[in-house]
Design a protein around this nucleic acid. Structure first.
Lengths: 223, 223
DNA sequence: CAGTGTGAATTTCTTCACAGCG
DNA sequence: CGCTGTGAAGAAATTCACACTG
């Protein structure tokens, strides 16, 4: 459709979606931009513009139909299908994510965890098998996995990323501190908890209170 | 100093800091904006402007002194002291964070975990005591805790936040899907993993490859 | 008449390009 | 001479404000 949807818009879509789902669950069938923006923590005009940029329309004088909203935003985000993921690194964080369970329910079932440790390989963590590195090609092939989550120690994160890329993974969510180098065909996002704490620290000190949200692009390409 | 440092700038500071520390560890003592920007994944001009806005200066013809950079950025971020944190919710994610260990080393030691479950209370997780809710006032008082990390189930996250706020916590890092309502005196950031995966999904589908970074403010106040 | 959709104004952020300093 | 610091240009994002429609 529209050739360009802005990064800022994309960053807000999950919040709109969640707000819409919430309202739907409460039995609401139609919502104004004022209300939905309030729920999602955005400005009403911004919300209207965002939706319009995706050709998601409302009804003048009425608002947006909740079911239509949910289905359209889901469609745009590609959530009308399951995207199995593989977690690389069965350490604490990897295990926590595997245990977390909330993934499958939101469309990202964990197909397997990859680890190098011989003690872990062969075991299962809340039903998810831990497999050795060389199983990756098979997984990608047979289970159509396009998303990898890296929870290894930072010093092997790049290595893990290279391996994922080599075997055809298209998206990487990186929980290490390491900034990853990936080819431009691969989408990569980093979530570093210490970074978040440092940012919080700044605002606390300065007394500025910014109710803020999750990751949004921080800049464009590397080069 | 300068009255206003932009949110975008603040979001990049942790990356600059990490890049500077990395280079320092490698024995580099001075760095140009080109080099540092490269390492941090930013544009050189943006980096220079960011640093200038914090009164962090370099030497013309030479570059920035690494030690000075590290100390000044740390100062701005408030990292010249330890900020003990409390983790609310000793479930999988809470445990993972507690086990993670990387916090203390980056200035955020975990003083305690809070949980309601009688089986957990009284135990320790990698040396960190799990205490009941009513210990919070004492912790805040005696250990000067200003930061809380919420890793509870989403449906009690707001409750947890209210409790933290009531007892004087000033910053909250929220790992649940729930958008928290907090008074303007409290700084709050949310990291929702499903959100990150959804965003990745969008970019993968659209074939756009955005090498992106961690959380940056998504909007200003709620009202 | 309530509330969308959008031109236009505004603000914010980024990048260019270069004067000027060490 | 190389690189910072910054005015000025440019791009992007946000917000206003209102015509218009169901």
């Amino acid at each position: 459709m529209d050739p360009a949807v802005s990064d800022a818009t994309v960053g807000r879509l999950p919040a709109y979606l969640r707000a819409a789902i919430d309202l739907g669950t409460q039995g609401v069938t139609s919502v104004s931009s004022d209300r939905l923006a309030e729920e999602a923590g955005a400005h009403p005009a911004t919300l209207r513009r965002d939706l319009a940029s995706l050709d998601i329309t409302g009804t003048r004088g009425v608002g947006y139909d909740i079911k239509y909203l949910v289905s359209q935003i889901s469609l745009v985000l590609g959530l009308n299908q399951q995207w199995p993921v593989v977690i690389v690194g069965a350490g604490n964080l990897g295990k926590a994510l595997a245990n977390y369970g909330g993934f499958a329910e939101r469309g990202f079932p964990v197909a397997a965890m990859i680890d190098v440790s011989p003690e872990l390989v062969g075991s299962t963590i809340s039903g998810i098998p831990v497999v050795p590195t060389d199983e990756l090609p098979r997984l990608v092939e047979e289970e159509d996995i396009l998303v990898g989550i890296i929870t290894t120690p930072a010093d092997v994160a790049q290595e893990a990323a290279d391996m994922l890329v080599e075997h055809g993974i298209r998206s990487i969510l990186n929980f290490t501190t390491e900034l990853l180098d990936v080819p431009p065909t691969v989408t990569c996002r980093s979530v570093d908890i210490a970074t978040e704490l440092q940012i919080l620290s700044f605002y606390r000190q300065r007394g500025r209170a910014a109710q803020t949200g999750t990751g949004v692009p921080l800049g464009s390409e590397h080069g």
